[in-house]
Design a protein around this nucleic acid. Structure first.
Length: 548
RNA sequence: GCGCCAGUAGCUCAGGGGAUAGAGCAACGGCCUUCUAAGCCGUGGGUCGCAGGUUCGAAUCCUGCCUGGCGUACCA
């Protein structure tokens, strides 16, 4: 919708310049907004107000000149009026709306391929394989996957990647925890490690291992067998959980490969070569001040083990070497500092980091009975994604996580999600889709069939009918803007608006009326709505049920 | 102390230079002999955290302050 308006006004502006009516150079950005009050028109631009100063004329006069220069040969506009303190308000002609419905029915309503030719890596989840995915990981997973869907829908070539932290101290601790539980099952003395993982899943893994290997485990001196079993088991569980949310990755990048092929050492050496790393107290440090950080940070602990940030830097070097046009990564708010360190180190190594877009989402607050629930994976105090999906289903979980922008804290009220799931707006949107399907069934059972032959859509004259079309026409704009901003929540709010307009239309008008021409017009309006809702829900990874 | 994010209706949140600030939930009152009432219509509800500043115009941008979350680990 905005695309058409933009073409018209851009041409009007150049006409006005040629006619000597406007001299501002350069012209300020041409933006359109949908007026809150539909009586003001379908689209408005404050461009004249933005030029008032340089033109040294009242905005209304400038807007009038632009309006007079509009060359609308195809007749899309019904009017272009100057309003308020200098808005130029456009109102589309009914034939424009009919065209929009036609486009939806023909499947031509989607966003433009603004990302054509652009290769994008989306890294998300990247949870350590030390336990089940929790609510916080759920937000990450759903956000990342929906961002990837938006990018794909706008023509980007997307790779979904999970950075698998299967190296380091936490994994060792995980192995020790399993070892302790296993030996206990075999009746041997085993001290549970300090700060070890206490979840039931550890005992389950130990039980399976004992069943498989028996008493031979008592001879295991290392932790390797236990760690490998735990990693394999937990990884399988994580994958299964993600699949329940309809999330699949194209690639799992294993952290241990960075150790195996020497890239950790190579990265450290390059940092040293550039004097960005130095030794102190038996550890190797990243030189903070030179990189614009507030202090020095440990790269290699005095124990000889790299701290987490060194492999992270090496991993990002690998990503950049793969030359994606954009590198999106989804991170919890607790990783902000680390993200800044990685970016600083990369710049210090001479890399351009403009392609990296970190989406930092704020924490999920979990409340139960109005009281906040504190979570800790190690103490096994958490609510898992699996539990949520068990209780309310994948659609509700996904939709819920996407109804807030990443910057906002998200309160997940467990009581509300579990007991009153029918109040969730996801049903409101899905219901609109199901209602259209119901109308289709009803029509079929009555032996009615509809076809668009010519002017039927002209019968869509009621305000609530036009209001639905106006929203349908915005779908492409919304998806493009959501993809550009990497903000799936825009699609969520759009769908709620569209569902609301459809329900209003549905309640005020019967679709299958005796007047066949009118019934045809309404039937296809409903069809178009159904198609757009299904497309929108698909972007969110939420199903569009045919009946509810 | 420093850094990032947030503060908008009773609650949860959209809007993030532009027209009279919106939605859902909660409260109250209406609407099913007719395509799904998981719906619709109506009513009430606001110092947009506070104070300055920039601007023709500020919930929106800038500065300071207050409150909350998260960081500020030789945890990841």
């Amino acid at each position: 919708m905005k695309k058409r308006a933009k073409q018209l006004i851009e041409r009007a502006l150049s006409n006005a310049i040629q006619a000597g009516k406007i001299s501002t150079d350069p012209i300020p950005p041409l933006v359109f907004e949908v007026p809150k009050d539909a009586s003001l028109g379908d689209l408005a631009t404050p461009i004249a107000m933005a030029m008032a100063r340089t033109e040294r004329r009242p905005p209304r006069a400038i807007a009038g000149d632009i309006a007079a220069c509009i060359d609308d040969a195809e007749g899309w506009l019904a009017s272009a009026e100057v309003a308020g303190s200098g808005y130029l308000n456009l109102r589309f002609h009914p034939r424009f709306w009919h065209r929009c419905v036609d486009e939806v029915l023909a499947g031509e309503h989607g966003p433009a391929a603004i990302g054509a030719g652009s290769r994008v890596l989306v890294e998300f989840v990247s949870a350590n394989p030390t336990g089940p995915l929790t609510v916080g990981h759920g937000r990450n997973a759903v956000l990342g996957d929906s961002i990837a869907r938006l990018l794909e829908a706008t023509g980007h070539e997307v790779t979904r990647e999970y950075y698998f932290n299967n190296a380091g101290r936490q994994m060792k601790l995980l192995g020790e925890s399993v070892r302790a539980r296993s030996l206990a099952l075999l009746g041997a003395e085993a001290e549970f490690p300090e700060g070890g993982y206490q979840g039931d899943y550890i005992a389950d893994i130990a039980a399976r291992l004992v069943a498989e290997r028996g008493a031979a485990l008592r001879q295991e001196t290392g932790v390797g067998v236990f760690k490998d079993a735990a990693e394999k088991s937990i990884f399988a569980d994580i994958r299964a959980t993600l699949e329940r949310l309809a999330i699949k990755f194209d690639r799992y990048f294993n952290e241990d490969t960075l150790y195996a092929d020497g890239r950790i050492d190579a990265t450290l050496q390059e940092l040293r070569d550039r004097d960005l790393a130095f030794d102190r107290d038996g550890a190797v440090w990243l030189r903070g001040e030179r990189l614009g950080l507030d202090k020095d940070r440990v790269l290699v602990k005095s124990s000889g083990e790299p701290a987490y940030r060194l492999p992270d830097i090496a991993y990002h070097r690998d990503k950049l070497a793969r030359s994606y046009h954009r590198n999106v990564l989804v991170l919890g708010a607790d990783h902000i500092a680390e993200h800044q360190e990685v970016l600083a180190a990369l710049r210090g190594l001479g890399y351009a980091t403009e392609s990296i877009h970190g989406i930092i989402y704020q924490f999920v607050t979990l409340t139960r009975g109005g009281v906040q629930v504190k979570m800790s994976t190690r103490r096994a105090e958490y609510v898992t994604v699996d539990e949520l999906v068990d209780d309310v289903g994948s659609d509700v979980v996904r939709f819920f996580f996407l109804t807030r922008k990443a910057d906002s804290h998200l309160e997940f009220d467990l009581d509300l999600a579990k007991k009153q799931s029918a109040d969730n707006p996801v049903f409101y949107v899905q219901y609109a889709h199901a209602r259209v399907c119901s109308v289709e069934k009803q029509a079929a059972s009555q032996g009615l069939s509809f076809a668009l032959g010519g002017d039927e859509l002209q019968r869509l004259e009621a305000p609530e009918e036009v209001a639905v079309v106006r929203l349908l026409a915005q779908f492409g704009d919304v998806v493009e803007e959501a993809a550009a901003a990497l903000e799936p929540h825009r699609v969520v709010f759009y769908l709620i608006d569209l569902a609301a307009e459809f329900h209003r239309f549905y309640n005020r008008n019967r679709i299958l009326v005796d007047d066949h021409e009118l019934a045809t017009a309404r039937y296809f309006l409903a069809q178009a709505t159904k198609l757009v809702i299904a497309d929108g829900l698909e972007l969110l990874g939420v199903g569009a049920p045919e009946s509810m």
